[in-house]
């Protein structure tokens, strides 16, 4: 079956005063209908840029899409005219942003905002919209939604607002939701509830979910497959079980070892040494090479590209066989 979303060889650059920055470097990905794909990586690794490129919401300039294809449901989003994109954004494609505190407009009632998309895309009238808003709020677990639908964002807590934001994304009946760090700004207990809610909704509606996070633990719990991003590239991509059992990129191992484990006793965390590289001056070789424990002299000079080392398991490492030794 053709994937719902297929990103091929996507290159996005930013022009800045300091020169060109390659924010996405030959990124490839597929998302099947109904699947959850986790994308992990540090700040600045290109996760959010990727989400916004898919929606074509990057400001251009300074950003520039240099090449590649973003096939969504058989249609190349990079070629689509603005009118078509707008139509898709409110309906088949949705995004949930990071910060619930600012994601809703403070001056309009929440219910109106949730269904504004439906009204704009011309499908329902005012009275119907209100009914739908109540229904959607109930679906995302807001108690007594018929009383709450006319309240304003400042009257709600962060977790509730995030539920409303999710309801807003669901309103158009999307096939794909891009969740860009949907729980980062929330308390841990609320985080868990929001993730559970997203997964429930996904199971109920069969939509695909791309869950962007910097938190390996969040991704481990929720995703079918995981893509690890570093310096604007996909460095490893595999199903969740494989990536946690047999990672084949040293950066993936580094990410895993830098989160505390409950069962492993009070051993020291092993942070990844060094800093992420500046995207403005990357050498020809592997961008992770300066921080890598298994690098060889070749790594600094040989360009690396992701290779399918096992069916469905991609790694952009020259020495994937050495990675096992790090565990």
């Amino acid at each position: 079956m053709a994937p719902l979303l297929a990103i091929e060889d996507l290159v996005v650059e930013f022009r800045t005063r300091g020169g060109r920055i390659v924010a996405l470097n030959h990124v490839f990905l597929t998302v099947q209908a109904g699947e959850t794909l986790g994308i992990v990586g540090e700040s600045g690794s290109g996760k959010s840029v990727l989400c916004r490129t898919i929606l074509r919401l990057l400001p251009t300039p300074p950003a520039e899409i240099k090449g590649g294809r973003v096939m969504f449901d058989g249609e190349d989003l990079l070629d689509a005219p603005e009118a078509r994109l707008r139509q898709l954004r409110g309906t088949a494609l949705a995004m949930i942003s990071q910060n619930p505190a600012t994601a809703l407009n403070p001056v309009w009632p929440i219910g109106d905002q949730i269904t504004e998309g439906l009204r704009v895309h011309g499908r329902i009238g005012r009275r119907e919209a209100r009914k739908r808003a109540v229904e959607l709020l109930r679906r995302v677990g807001i108690p007594s939604p018929e009383l709450r639908v006319d309240e304003y964002p400042h009257q709600w807590s962060g977790g509730m607002v995030q539920r409303a934001v999710i309801a807003m994304a669901l309103a158009g009946g999307p096939k794909l939701i891009l969740a860009d760090e949907p729980t980062t700004a929330l308390d841990v207990t609320i985080q868990d509830q929001i993730l559970a809610l997203l997964l429930d909704l996904q199971a109920a509606s069969g939509m695909a979910l791309v869950l962007v996070s910097h938190d390996m633990a969040v991704v481990a719990e929720t995703s079918d497959r995981v893509a690890v991003m570093y310096a604007g590239r996909i460095v490893e991509l595999a199903d969740t079980r494989t990536i946690f059992r047999e990672p084949r990129h040293p950066y993936t191992v580094g990410l895993m070892q830098s989160i505390p484990r409950i069962e492993g006793g009070a051993g020291r965390l092993r942070p990844i040494p060094g800093q992420p590289p500046s995207l403005a001056d990357l050498g020809p070789g592997c961008p992770f090479q300066p921080r890598c424990a298994v690098a060889s002299p070749d790594c600094a000079t040989t360009p690396v590209a992701p290779v399918e080392i096992a069916p469905g398991h991609w790694s952009a490492c020259l020495h994937p066989e050495r990675v096992g030794a790090l565990l």
Binding site: L57, R89, G90, T91, M95, N99, N105, V120
Partner: peptide
């Protein structure tokens, strides 16, 4: 630069709607 403007764009609203209905009151 605020998220609600991004959210409005994510929902496929045109620039006029965003400027007049969403940002102007703010």
């Amino acid at each position: 630069g605020k998220d609600y403007v991004l959210a409005a764009r994510t929902l496929g609203f045109g620039p006029w709607r965003i400027v007049f209905r969403h940002v102007l009151p703010n």
